[in-house]
Design a protein around this nucleic acid. Structure first.
Lengths: 189, 189
DNA sequence: GTCTATAACGAGATAGAC
DNA sequence: GTCTATCTCGTTATAGAC
């Protein structure tokens, strides 16, 4: 049983990396199998269809992202600091030339099986809600000042960070994303 | 010869739409052929390899985008107006659920043949240069005030708009992009 | 310039032995 | 759980007739 969990996790690790690098339509079971030194049939035992694998990837990614958001909330800091910590989550993603998993899947959205589409939207909505909360907290405490709804601004921040990942990724320069991200956060705060 | 041009253009039209909708790895010659009512072999006559077709798509898209930028420049307006007009170019893209061609290809970047990678980067760099020019013009005329380099801010704007396309696209609501885009431009101006 | 036919390969997926 | 073997289909691409 420990083996099964371990193997499933290793499959997810390899598949996650491949999707973030090449997209859901840009990798195959053969790629993952070769990377792990097992056969494709073995992968199908753990994840019968590619759609199953895709769903599992998004769920796990969302859980990890959610945990990171809770960790940011745990430390009592000002809204600006939280936003910068949030941007750092994105910067970490980029480090080995990856795209955000759900940003990548958003590009491929129209080609995804329905369950994956729903999971991608859920991921973004969760992030928007968290961001809106940070913004409202910042405003009520006087750390932050903005016009319009916190939801709209949350969407703008999320979009901007995903876009910064998208356009920075071709370059080998991690500072490129950082510069853009900090400039965007600075616009808010 | 008129036929050839016409057929090539029709192929490009169909392929462009498919790439913007489903990605370069998400469409096939068979899709285009079915849409135009011709055979796959006929497509290979006009564009021997898929890479050739991809390059042609980016070049044509870049030319059209460049012409749109020139059109914006032609009318003597303030920097803010030009930025809004620029954002509208993106909004138009989204209208039939398309992604920006080069934004889509940026997601798939790692899987693209080298000539296409170079063409994608050239597209973004051209846009950055144009945006930086608008920002500098705005600053020198006193329409606009910003800190840091015009290049960095240009990149932030481009990234933010691409990201807004990416995250708005799953929704059927064109206003969603507009709200986000105007919020982002408002941050600058 | 478009067609038919086909090659050559890789994809997702399944059956059944171990 | 993992393997070998295989199926079926879709993919890019080419040869050669019309």
């Amino acid at each position: 049983m420990a083996d099964q969990i371990d193997t499933s996790a290793r499959i997810l690790d390899a598949a996650e990396r491949l999707v973030q690098l090449r997209g859901f339509n840009g990798f195959s079971y053969a790629d993952v199998a070769a990377e792990l030194g097992v056969t494709k049939a073995s992968l199908h035992y753990h994840f019968p269809s590619k759609s199953d694998l895709g769903e599992a990837l998004i769920v796990r990614y969302g859980e990890r992202f959610g945990a990171a958001l809770e960790a940011i909330d745990a430390a009592p800091s000002e809204a600006q600091e939280k936003l910068l910590a949030y941007a750092d989550l994105y910067a970490n993603v980029l480090e080995d030339h990856r795209m955000c998993l759900c940003g990548m899947l958003a590009a491929e959205y129209k080609t995804l099986p329905e369950p994956m589409q729903r999971a991608v939207l859920a991921f973004f909505e969760r992030n928007e809600i968290w961001l809106a909360g940070v913004l409202e907290q910042g405003e009520s405490r006087g750390d932050l000042h903005f016009t319009g709804s916190s939801q709209d601004l949350a969407r703008a921040i999320l979009s901007a960070l995903e876009g910064a990942l998208l356009t920075s990724r071709p370059y080998d320069d991690p500072a490129r994303f950082q510069t853009t991200a900090r400039r965007l956060i600075a616009m808010v705060a």
